[in-house]
Write a protein that binds this DNA or RNA. Structure first.
Length: 489
RNA sequence: GGUAUCAUGGCCGAGCGGUUAGGCAACGGUCUGCAAAACCGUGUACAGCGGUUCGAGUCCGCUUGAUACCUCCA
């Protein structure tokens, strides 16, 4: 097993060799979406980033348990809403059952993510299905003396925790700074300190999503579900915890505090955070209202979009940047990704047509080594892609008979492309809507035959008319030495 | 105000003490009836100011600017 994989750990702010807790096994937990709205481009980033991690670990031979939750309860809208959670609010507005809303957006999330060819996680637990685990965890924290009850709600005592631990270890914060710098928030009277966070929140009478507990009818706090579900399915300590950078504080910080109190150890060894997708240099987010949903991207219906972008274009676009770098959305960049992706896919087709030569003019083994090196260096997909384009150059040159590869190297290159493009990067050829329709093939053959006759007679007007008319229906015809070929745009 | 992360050519984005990133766009060439594709070649770059070093986008300091988090957020 490859043990040269290095992972950037937010905890240490450096790349560390990946050593799993249990030999040949890897446990990974990633914070999933809150299902109260359609998934947007920002949601695609962690889904694809950790899909890449998942796929590469699998590829290396690890037995991976990948847990990605669905948050369907508990996130507070804001203080003014007095504990009404987002999902309940949406449900009341639309007069739907909360679980109806959850189901609707969960299904839509799955549809979008599936189209991006994101592998399904091993377990996808829902917060609402783990009330008992969450209540038990609160009880443990309570019994350990790190929680207090206030008016039916339960809060985590951050100040007390910080006496023996460092609350802020992940985000580089110091509690004293938090004390003096916390913004003024109203209605904090239930809490001893502004930075204490809720473990259990008492439900207001109008609040529909509620569960019984020893303290009140209510719902669990913001950070608890991840601690409860990750420990349930991955153990008290597991290998990788992932999520967006915006969750670093306070969400992940609080997870560490909860788990440390309950299990006396940090929940995860490696903390991985993907950066944000920006639009005009600003974070794309729900609250900012500047987001573009995946549906809109696929259909090209948002006003900021010059065209529709296919799921694979989006996936390629995201993989062309390193996951820890911010990625700026732009039509020009998306269009460049689209062209680059098509070039890569065409080369894959060409690769199948190559015939072996007597010797090799390019070093495929080195190319392969570079791809592994890039993946092992904190999942550097842009470098992998750059190397794959070197492979594209070789493929096209061999096809043009300007270079040659031996049969063995040809097989190596095919295996390399299959492994890295399909298995690891998860890029698939876009399905041609006419694929498998024999009639279309036959019709095209008839048309090109007529055109060929015209060309033989140097009847360029007819030849060009056929090509132009076909271009209007998005079929491009290209004349090569071996005759005309056609493809759907 | 605090914490963290950045600042790379027309655009998107890698890199990291000394060697071409890559994609898209642009220009020249090969091929071609023309076009497209493909291939070959070319250019433009590391925010500013100091410092360390034989040598710095690459390390250190300062300045300027940007973003994220400190309130739900991927």
């Amino acid at each position: 097993m490859n043990n040269n994989l290095f992972v950037y750990n937010t905890l240490s702010r450096s790349k560390e060799r990946f050593v799993p807790i249990h030999l040949n096994h890897a446990g990974m937990y990633v914070c999933g979406p809150t299902v109260y709205g359609d998934a947007h481009l920002g949601h695609a980033r962690p889904a694809i980033t950790f899909d890449l991690v998942f796929r590469y670990l699998l590829y290396l031979g690890y037995k991976v348990r990948y847990v990605r939750n669905i948050t369907d309860v508990g996130h507070l809208e804001n203080d003014a809403d007095e504990g009404e959670d987002k999902i309940a609010k949406k449900a009341r507005l639309e007069e739907l059952e909360p679980m109806e809303v959850v189901q609707y957006f969960t299904d839509r999330y799955h549809d979008n993510i599936d189209r991006l060819n994101v592998k399904k996680p091993s377990i996808e637990p829902r917060a609402s299905g783990h009330m008992i685990e969450q209540i038990n965890m609160i009880r443990e924290i309570f019994d350990a003396g790190f929680a207090y009850e206030s008016n039916g709600s339960v809060y985590f005592d951050v100040e007390k925790y910080n006496k023996t631990n460092h609350y802020g270890i992940l985000s580089g914060r110091v509690l004293e700074d938090l004390l003096s710098n916390t913004r003024d928030l109203e209605s904090q009277d239930e809490k001893r300190n502004s930075f204490d966070f809720a473990l259990w929140k008492k439900a207001q009478p109008e609040h529909i999503m509620r569960w019984p507990s020893p303290w009140s009818d209510g719902f669990p706090g913001w950070h608890l579900e991840c601690s409860a579900m990750s420990s349930k399915y991955l153990g008290e300590q597991f290998d990788i915890h992932g999520g967006g950078m915006d969750l670093l504080f306070p969400h992940h910080e609080s997870e560490i505090a909860q788990s440390t109190v309950c299990f006396h150890k940090a929940p995860a060894r490696y903390w991985m955070h993907n950066n944000m997708i920006t639009i005009n240099g600003q974070k794309m987010g729900k609250s900012l209202g500047n987001f573009i949903t995946l549906d809109e991207l696929f259909a090209g219906t948002h006003h900021a979009l010059e065209q529709a972008y296919s799921p694979m274009t989006i996936r390629f676009f995201i993989l062309q940047a390193h996951y820890r770098s911010p990625l700026d959305f732009g039509n020009e960049a998306l269009q460049a990704a689209e062209k680059g992706f098509n070039k890569l896919m065409k080369a894959m087709e060409t690769l199948e047509k190559l015939v072996p030569g007597a010797d090799s003019t390019s070093d495929i083994a080195t190319l392969e080594a570079k791809c592994y090196e890039a993946m092992n260096d904190d999942f550097n997909s842009p470098i992998v892609i750059a190397n794959l384009f070197e492979g594209v150059r070789i493929i096209n040159s061999v096809y043009d008979k300007k270079e040659s590869l031996t049969g063995a190297d040809l097989e190596k290159l095919k295996a390399l492309f299959k492994s890295f493009i399909i298995d690891i990067l998860g890029l698939l050829p876009e399905t041609d809507p006419t694929a498998g329709i024999q009639l279309v093939d036959d019709l095209m053959q008839v048309i090109l035959e007529i055109r060929k006759n015209a060309r033989t007679n140097k009847d360029w007007a007819t030849s060009d008319k056929i090509r132009d008319e076909l271009a209007r229906v998005k079929i491009s015809v290209k004349d090569t030495k071996d005759g005309a070929s056609w493809s759907i745009e």
